[in-house]
């Protein structure tokens, strides 16, 4: 017979508990991220300062490019992070899509603006570096072109999320798009390289030299660590906001908000 169980006024406790058992609870992750985001933030600042000091002061000037090469300490880590974050975003969104995990969707959504910022940073530093190297801010270099298309992919993802009001629908739609983008990125990368060699003959490769001075390598590695820590800190903070918004009906959010 059709009937209805008495509705539970507080769905939070039992629901949060089930979430915890099934996927790792948003509440737990919220507090976990709250502990770790500042730590990663501090580490990022420390590594940035150290990396910049070693990169701008200690490292010797390049015998060809003089001091202008020093922008690689920003450019190369940014370019690396732009790709890396896209992969993290797409994989996380894919996990959320398949196993219906809210936390994964929150991570994916939080990755996008950070990744887009790194992509933009890589483009700007690449253009700035282009002026002394090529004599112009923009040439259709394979790497820069790939970064530009990647920025378009990030922008498309964020535009789609912004257009879909419903969080869950938006997250799933974004996940499909991110996964399609993930399959496409290697193809885009390869096609752009192919197109580039076709038109430019010998391309100027920025990191083409077989060996790099240890005094240049060390600050570069420090900067790599710095951008990774920054990404973790920024992403975790964003995830906390997403979780607060999405779990606003639950008791733990009420407790957080009301002290």
């Amino acid at each position: 017979m059709a009937m209805r169980k008495p509705a539970q006024p507080t769905t939070s406790r039992s629901r949060a508990w089930r979430w915890f058992h099934r996927f790792g609870s948003p509440a737990y992750f919220y507090f976990f991220a709250g502990r770790w985001a500042p730590r990663f933030g501090h580490l990022a600042v420390a590594f940035f300062l150290a990396g910049l000091y070693f990169g701008l002061v200690v490292a010797p000037p390049d015998y060809q490019m003089g001091d202008s090469y020093r922008i690689i300490f920003i450019h190369v880590p940014s370019a690396w992070m732009s790709m890396f974050i896209y992969v993290v975003m797409a994989v996380s969104a894919g996990i959320g899509l398949v196993w219906r995990i809210k936390l994964s969707h929150a991570v994916a959504r939080s990755c996008a603006p950070v990744g887009a910022a790194f992509t933009f940073c890589a483009l700007v530093t690449g253009a700035l570096w282009g002026k002394p190297t090529w004599g112009t801010y923009w040439i259709w270099d394979a790497r820069l072109t790939s970064e530009l298309v990647l920025l378009f992919l990030y922008v498309g993802y964020m535009a789609l999320l912004a257009a879909l009001d419903d969080w869950k629908t938006g997250s799933r739609a974004g996940a499909v798009l991110a996964l399609v983008g993930l399959v496409n990125i290697p193809i885009i990368h390869y096609s752009v390289e192919w197109w580039n060699t076709l038109h430019q003959g010998a391309t100027i490769t920025k990191l083409g030299r077989p060996s790099i001075d240890i005094r240049m390598l060390v600050p570069l590695l420090i900067m790599f660590a710095a951008v990774n820590f920054y990404f973790l800190a920024a992403m975790l903070n964003r995830v906390r906001c997403e979780l607060l918004d999405q779990e606003r009906r639950t008791r733990w959010v009420q407790e957080v908000v009301n002290g």
Partner: peptide
């Protein structure tokens, strides 16, 4: 795929073009 993702939106504008065009790069090249 883009059309499927945006079909439920009332105000789509150029969103479909925005999300699909970057994916067309290799085909165009």
């Amino acid at each position: 795929i883009g059309a499927g993702l945006t079909v439920g939106l009332r105000r789509r504008g150029l969103l479909l073009a925005l999300i699909v065009m970057p994916l067309y790069v290799p085909i165009l090249i």
